[in-house]
């Protein structure tokens, strides 16, 4: 496969996991209950670990760069993460739903990447999948709890669905470089729909239909949120260039 496409694909996976990790890490110390603060931080750490593996592999293919240069010195227009990942935390319900929608997708995607003909990509997917299986379990249990909990929690979940659903179409709308994944996105979407529907049913939540879908993250056209995330994330590297930390 052409290397540039592979590099772009790896950066897409790295950026998505890094940005979602960043968002989750904003909760650290502020969670609704200590055990769940720990659980979400754990997920943030898993995603950060995954992003590092993708960046390191991309850096190896690119040569003359490293994980930190890729994460800290690329701009908003160069970042290729999913729009879903950069959406604000909102309340706990919105954070949970964002995690579930993404993890459910990541699980199905990585289940296919584990048989990819690129050994390294295959190894990273295999390692990550164990973590992702837990993320799916944890977040889907919370979606059910909150959807089927109190009137207030249900209202909040409905609001979260309104906020986040428009960013789910992009998951299955492949950018040109995603051809290297060698994945059938149509059947991936069908399977994702099926699983999400089951969880939403148990949570007594409706699955939206015929909603306009936003896109652009994969090719660097983001929501306004990403600029602030990068300002935060990249602050020290930008303020003190060429320093070792």
């Amino acid at each position: 496969m052409p290397d540039q496409e592979k590099i772009n694909y790896l950066l897409h996976l790295a950026d998505t996991t890094l940005i979602l990790s960043h968002r989750n890490s904003e909760w650290c110390g502020h969670g609704p209950v200590l055990e769940q603060d720990i659980a979400l931080t754990n997920i943030a750490l898993d995603l950060l670990g995954q992003s590092r593996l993708f960046y390191q592999y991309a850096a190896e293919l690119m040569g003359n760069t490293d994980e930190d240069q890729l994460a800290y010195l690329r701009t908003e227009r160069e970042y290729k993460n999913l729009l879903l990942a950069e959406q604000p935390n909102g309340d706990w319900g919105q954070t949970i739903l964002r995690q579930y929608l993404y993890s459910q997708f990541q699980q199905l995607l990585f289940q296919q990447l584990v048989t990819h003909n690129d050994q390294q990509l295959c190894a990273i997917a295999t390692k990550s999948l164990k973590e992702t299986n837990y993320h799916v379990r944890w977040s889907s249990e919370w979606v059910i709890r909150l959807g089927d909990g109190t009137t207030e929690s249900r209202e909040r979940m409905l609001h979260a669905i309104d906020e986040l659903w428009p960013y789910t179409g992009e998951l299955f709308d492949p950018a040109a470089y995603e051809s290297v994944a060698d994945v059938d996105f149509t059947s991936l979407q069908q399977e994702w729909n099926k699983r999400v529907k089951l969880i939403f049913e148990e949570a007594t939540l409706p699955v939206p239909e015929k909603i306009f879908m936003q896109q652009g993250g994969k090719t660097g056209a983001h929501t306004e949120h990403l600029g602030y995330i990068l300002a935060d994330l990249q602050y020290l590297q930008r303020t003190y260039p060429n320093s070792i930390w």
């Binding site: 769940q36 706990w92 319900g93 929690s153």
Partner: peptide, 12 residues
């Protein structure tokens, strides 16, 4: 801010 979350978990 976590109160509604804890209540929902108990209710569920």
């Amino acid at each position: 801010n976590g109160r509604w979350v804890r209540e929902a978990a108990m209710a569920h």
